[in-house]
């Protein structure tokens, strides 16, 4: 398991922290070094609300290695309220209830684990809003 990667990405995975361009205000997730809109390199950290709408989804039946134990699971593209689109898993919903355009919100869940004694990876997933 690549522990440094998980440590490095903690603010993205737990807080949904991206960045915002100080010159054109475009919001980025994941954070970027150069603004894709205006090429500015002056960006400040920006934490997303975690609210969004479903752009697309797929139920995965054949998964890469460490995700085999989780099949079937749902992956999705979500349009965040603040602009960017994010790749994620859906949770707390069955495949036949999922609809493109439905509102969803961020929640922190287990993403994968490496066997009984291995590292457990947590991060964002999205679910239908609870309130």
């Amino acid at each position: 398991m690549d522990i440094p990667r998980s440590w490095r990405l903690r603010n993205q995975r737990y807080l949904l922290e991206g960045n915002a361009c100080t010159s054109c205000d475009k919001k980025h997730f994941p954070p970027v070094l150069v603004c894709s809109e205006c090429k500015s390199r002056d960006l400040r950290p920006f934490t997303f609300s975690g609210k969004g709408k479903l752009y697309s989804y797929s139920t995965v039946y054949q998964a890469p290695g460490q995700f085999e134990a989780f099949v079937p699971y749902i992956v999705a593209l979500v349009d965040l309220e603040e602009g960017p689109r994010i790749t994620t898993q859906l949770t707390d919903i069955s495949p036949d209830e999922v609809r493109i355009g439905m509102p969803v919100e961020k929640v922190i869940r287990k993403i994968s684990e490496e066997g009984e004694r291995g590292l457990i990876l947590y991060g964002y997933k999205f679910r239908p809003p609870v309130d």
């Binding site: 995965v60 890469p64 992956v75 994968s112």
Partner: peptide, 12 residues
């Protein structure tokens, strides 16, 4: 970091 690490296969 953002596709493969969270369970997206190339097919997905």
């Amino acid at each position: 970091d953002y596709e493969m690490a969270i369970g997206l296969s190339f097919v997905a």
